[in-house]
Amino acid sequence: MPTQTTSNILMVRPANFGFNPETASNNFYQQQDKRGPQEINKLAQKEFDGFIGLLVEKGVNVLLVEDTVEPKKTDAIFPNNWFSTHEDGKVILYPMFSPNRRQERRTDIFEILMKKGYKISDIIDLTFFENDEQFLEGTGSLILDRINNVVYACRSLRTHLVPLAYFGRIMEYEVVDFDANQVVNGLVSPIYHTNVMMHIGSEIAVVCLDSITLASEKLKVQEYLEKTGKKMIPITAKQKFQFAGNMLEVKNSEGGKLTVMSEAAYQSLGQVQIQTIQRYTDIAVPSIPTIEKLGGGSARCMMAEIFLPLV
């Protein structure tokens, strides 16, 4: 029986966190900062350590990996974009939009996992799509309903249809794709990652339906969520800009469920939304303002879920 959540989370402690101009071209959540790179990285490390401390305190098993100093990788703190793991022992490597982010892919991480007793039966490498400028950025692009084998994805420069269909075929997932837009400085632009506007937990679905452009596609998403028994919690475009869609449900060692979201996301939610989530899971709230501001990613992006079986 497949599960939606895991208590095993891999996180990469940054060595050179900072603003990445390559990704900023279509990630409008990133903001530049006048502080020096060392100060910024130090602040990010402090926020990262606080986040790990919170998860450990809540009973989540965190596999901590240190980023390598060279080559410099400003976004190594977001490992969910370059790989995903699955209960049948598969690991998938994903094609990345930004050339400098491709340096984040590290096979030694899989050796670390195997040494800890996880079984990897197959590594499926989709990075060949980069040769044709076709991208699919892991669980940034893909919102996986692992229980029902449905994948939700908003089309963008980082989420192309050909690798998306390929993923659906090899993993036997039904694909629900759609256009999702946002208004930035008065201009309409595609949302770069699906996990900015959507989260699927065991029983809940947090989704910014307002961002889905076509009424027919909005209806399709709603129908799939209802059909698969998810309690829908709509969020507004304003809440989405505070990373309210960027959540992840994890388990602790006793099987208790936690929805992890940043302080910015939590503060943006209304009381009814919070109470609805708490009806199904506890909530864990790390404070990561530096990481959100310069990296343009939030709590979900920092956690790579380990679903691999133990040997």
Rank of each mutant, 00 (worst) to 15 (best):
residue 113 L to H: 02
residue 241 F to A: 10
residue 54 L to V: 00
residue 158 R to H: 10
residue 263 E to L: 12
residue 156 S to K: 07
residue 278 Q to M: 13
residue 81 N to T: 13
residue 2 P to D: 11
residue 310 L to A: 09
residue 218 K to P: 01
residue 301 C to S: 03
residue 16 N to T: 12
residue 59 G to K: 06
residue 110 F to K: 02
residue 19 F to N: 07
residue 108 D to L: 09
residue 261 M to V: 07
residue 112 I to N: 00
residue 5 T to C: 13
residue 261 M to G: 06
residue 174 E to Y: 12
residue 156 S to Y: 10
residue 75 D to L: 08
residue 311 V to G: 11
residue 230 K to V: 08
residue 222 Q to S: 06
residue 86 H to R: 02
residue 10 L to Y: 04
residue 209 L to N: 09
residue 44 A to C: 11
residue 234 P to A: 02
residue 292 E to Q: 09
residue 297 G to S: 05
residue 57 E to V: 00
residue 138 G to C: 06
residue 25 S to M: 09
residue 32 Q to M: 14
residue 59 G to E: 08
residue 242 Q to N: 14
residue 174 E to T: 13
residue 19 F to C: 02
residue 181 N to C: 08
residue 264 A to Q: 14
residue 39 E to C: 05
residue 284 A to G: 01
residue 290 T to C: 10
residue 301 C to M: 01
residue 249 E to Q: 14
residue 230 K to G: 03
residue 169 R to C: 01
residue 8 N to W: 03
residue 147 I to E: 14
residue 149 N to H: 13
residue 80 N to E: 06
residue 17 F to R: 04
residue 67 D to A: 13
residue 245 G to D: 04
residue 105 R to H: 02
residue 240 K to S: 15
residue 250 V to M: 02
residue 163 P to E: 07
residue 248 L to K: 13
residue 152 Y to N: 02
residue 69 V to A: 13
